[in-house]
Design a protein around this nucleic acid. Structure first.
Length: 441
RNA sequence: GUGGUAGUAGCUCAGUCGGUUAGAGCACCAGAUUGUGGAUCUGGGGGUCGCCGGUUCAAAUCCGGUCUACCACCCCA
């Protein structure tokens, strides 16, 4: 028989790997709870239209899409936001605001896999809806930082770079660049870090024309080099369109509020103004942010931003919204590289060593101990005591309880502290209290 | 979807001027040890050398294709 292989880009989670998966989920639930977010989930399979609606038809190439037996065009979800937007849109009238929801779930993308990117991965998503001001971003960035710091990552390890699509739009307007051309320019900005200066210049020339390219490129380079608000203000002042200039200045007031709040909650060393972050998504409408490894060796750890139009797009009221997602794949790579993966061991509390004709009393004890919440394991097959003690040691149990013919005949069992290597005899009737005594200490 | 590199045991790998029955370490199982420990020693299971085809008396080894993985591009919600 030919073995059936794992699908490309998918993973098996053997117990050891699953422990890490569970660890991620535990930490994310914990920090989300600390921020007052409620957990939700939606279906893994959705109507294809849900994703087309948001991202356009060209996105289909990256979708696990197919026709089901009822002739419906469906797709595995590539991200959580459309599902969230649909759910919120359907109940928006009755939801208490702000809506603060999070989810932990698998996402699917039909892409060639590579470092940090698989076809099925787990995302922690958090969204805050109903708040139009930067207070939403503050709360979300606070949660994002917490969801990384909880793994032991510090300001030495990661940084959250914050940008602003609205500022970019206004800035380009001051230079008479709007609409499709503006989008094209942002596409060039997005690639600025990765492309050679010549390629960038050429791409920009193709978008805005040769005459405008050089001065614009100069201005863009100054903008993306900005790391604090003062510089931003100075650069924003050099425009020709007075109306756009005013709009850009209004954004700066929101920036000031955002950064001051982040400073106040202790994230000053974790966040950075960086207009080089654009994010590909067309639906982002305001502040956008990405969490990066400080050393720049990995893909983005997380990304998010404001998407004020999306709930309305899904048939709901006009509802301001922002959110972010953290993926498990890059995070695991980073934690592994930094030696921050915790030793995740699964250990029982008590291991029963069972001798000849002693199975029943041992089973009774196991049942009683389990009923009291102790994790109990014992050898399923009778074997030598040496072998059973070896198994007891490997099980990670704190105690080994010996049930042999000698003990049973005398109405006792032996309780051994495996770490201290000390052993005592206790009457069968008081096994529970003897075990309890060891676990109290 | 495009390009580059690679594929030998569960894992890490050795093994090519083409030549007997393909190896080691780790892991797993058993025995030494039928009543007390993660050690040690001995033994064992586990491979159609990714798959298919070609060249050859003979292929893990050379050639072609294919699949998969890794890296990069496209994309990155």
């Amino acid at each position: 028989m030919e073995p059936v292989r794992l699908l490309p880009g998918f993973r098996d989670f053997y117990p050891e790997a699953f422990r890490l998966r569970r660890h991620f989920a535990t930490i994310w639930r914990q920090v989300a709870g600390l921020h007052g977010f409620s957990e939700y989930d939606g279906p893994v399979l959705e109507a294809l239209d849900l994703f087309r609606k948001k991202s356009g038809e060209e996105i289909e190439r990256q979708l696990f899409a197919f026709t089901d037996k009822g002739d419906r065009a469906v797709a595995l979800r590539p991200e959580m936001t459309p599902t969230l937007a649909r759910m919120v849109a359907a109940k928006a009238a009755s939801l208490r605001r702000p809506v603060k929801w999070f989810s932990i779930g698998d996402q699917f993308r039909y892409e060639r896999q590579q470092k940090g990117r698989l076809r099925c991965f787990t995302q922690f998503n958090a969204d805050l809806l109903g708040e139009e001001g930067p207070a939403a971003e503050v709360e979300l960035i606070s949660l994002l930082a917490a969801s990384l710091r909880a793994f032991g990552l510090t300001e030495e390890d990661f940084c959250i770079r914050i940008s602003d699509r609205t500022f970019w739009i206004h800035f380009l307007e001051t230079r008479g660049i709007t609409g499709e051309t503006a989008r094209g320019v942002l596409g060039v900005v997005d690639k600025l870090e990765r492309e050679s200066p010549e390629a960038t210049r050429q791409a920009l020339g193709a978008v805005v024309g040769e005459a405008a390219a050089d001065p614009l490129l100069e201005a863009i380079r100054r903008l993306v080099a900005v790391r604090d608000l003062g510089e931003l203000e100075a650069i924003a002042g050099n425009g020709v369109d007075a109306g756009a200039l005013g709009a850009a200045r209004e954004r700066l007031a929101l920036w000031a509020e955002l950064m001051a709040d982040l400073e106040a909650i202790g994230l000053g060393d974790f966040v950075q103004v960086d207009l080089g972050v654009v994010r590909g998504l067309a639906y982002y409408t305001g502040f956008v942010f990405e969490a990066f490894d400080r050393k720049g060796a990995f893909r983005a750890l997380a990304g998010g931003g404001r998407y004020d139009g999306l709930v309305e797009l899904f048939g709901g009221p006009s509802l301001p919204a922002a959110g972010f997602a953290v993926g498990d794949v890059v995070l695991e790579e980073l934690l592994r590289e930094r030696g921050k993966l915790p030793p995740l061991v699964e250990a029982v509390d008590v291991y029963l060593v069972v001798g000849e004709n002693s199975r029943r009393p041992a089973l009774e004890a196991a049942a009683a101990l389990r009923a009291h919440g102790y994790r109990v394991e014992y050898a399923l097959k009778a074997g030598g005591f040496g072998k059973q003690f070896k198994a007891a040691a490997q099980s990670g149990a704190r105690l080994a309880l010996t049930f042999g013919p000698d003990e049973i005949a005398r109405g006792v069992c032996k309780v051994k502290d495996l770490a201290a290597r000390t052993e005592e005899e206790v009457p069968l009737a008081s096994v529970l209290t003897a075990v309890a005594r060891h676990f109290q200490a």
